[in-house]
Simulated assay, not measured.
Amino acid sequence: MTYPPLFPQQPSPKRSRGPLLLVGGLVLLLLAIVATGVVLVVRRSDDQPAVDPAPRTKPSDPTAVEFRRVLTVKAGTCPTPAPAGTTCDAKGMRYTLGKVELDGSNVTEVKTGIQQGSTTGGWYVGLTLDPEGTKLFAQLTSSLSKANPPANQLAILVRGQVVTAPSVQSAIAGGKIEISGGYTRDSAEQLAGEITG
């Protein structure tokens, strides 16, 4: 004998396919966007580099930057042609200089930045020296610090022109040099560009 079911079976409800179709459509749209992005990146790399080459960070020409002792300094224009060992700066000072003590071959990095603690936002050009340059610079500044003015001045030349000639008070170790003195961002970047070539 069969008994009728206690609970009549309900037909199973039909599931709506709307949400599933919506999710599937979104996945296909996302895949199409990603594929288009990959094609654009590949095409761009064929046409031109996606990233510009790194800027030069050290001198391309070792003679671009020179470090020399100041022998004499006086106001005046540079004669043309200038005698050997004589050069001028942009402010109208004429320098007689000693031999090149170190040069651009000892510079490993050239960068610009804003001086720490500067209230006027003064920019500088920073030079980093290699181990040999660090040692030579420390010896040079130690020697200069014991001399009387103007023989205690160190001239830094860029492409034959004195860009700074500070008095040296003590040995400078560490191989980090800042060229400063009223530079704006543009003029600091221009000087860095002249150093790196």
Rank of each mutant, 00 (worst) to 15 (best):
T72R: 06
R94E: 06
A147H: 08
P8W: 00
F7Y: 06
K146H: 09
A50G: 11
K91T: 10
P131M: 04
V42M: 12
S143P: 11
Y124A: 10
S180I: 07
I195D: 02
K146Q: 12
D52F: 13
S105K: 13
T77L: 06
I195P: 00
V38I: 14
R185Y: 13
T128E: 14
F67I: 00
K58P: 00
L30C: 07
L30E: 14
K176T: 04
T63V: 10
T57V: 06
C88Y: 06
G193A: 09
G37Q: 15
Q153D: 06
A192K: 10
K91N: 14
V65Y: 00
T119P: 11
L102G: 05
A155Y: 05
Q153F: 05
T184Y: 05
Q115L: 13
E194L: 10
L127D: 08
I156W: 05
L28V: 14
Q190P: 02
S60Y: 00
P4R: 15
K74H: 08
Y124W: 02
S143Q: 15
G175N: 03
N106V: 07
T196P: 13
G92H: 09
P81L: 14
E109H: 02
Q169M: 09
D61G: 05
G92C: 02
D47Y: 11
P81W: 14
P53K: 02
T57A: 00
C78F: 00
K135N: 07
G117A: 08
K176I: 01
A151W: 07
S167I: 03
I33H: 10
L191V: 02
Q48Y: 13
G85I: 11
T134C: 11
G182D: 01
G121A: 03
V107Y: 01
L20M: 15
E189T: 10
T120H: 09
R68S: 01
A188L: 13
L144K: 01
R17S: 14
T184N: 05
D61C: 10
V163E: 00
T164S: 03
L127G: 10
E132R: 10
E109I: 07
L136I: 10
A188H: 12
T112K: 03
P53E: 07
E132S: 13
G175Y: 00
V100R: 02
P59C: 02
D130V: 12
C78S: 12
L154G: 05
P59S: 02
P81Q: 08
K74S: 05
K111H: 09
A173W: 12
A54P: 08
G24I: 03
T119A: 08
I114E: 00
T184C: 07
N106I: 07
T87W: 08
T57H: 03
G24D: 15
G104H: 04
Q10E: 13
L136A: 08
G18L: 15
V41E: 15
Q116D: 10
S105Q: 08
P4K: 14
A192N: 05
L144W: 02
L29K: 14
A50S: 09
R94Q: 13
Q161K: 10
A173R: 07
Q116G: 07
P131Y: 00
E109V: 15
V38E: 13
K111Q: 13
K74L: 04
I114C: 03
G197K: 09
A192F: 07
V110A: 04
L127P: 12
L97E: 12
A155K: 05
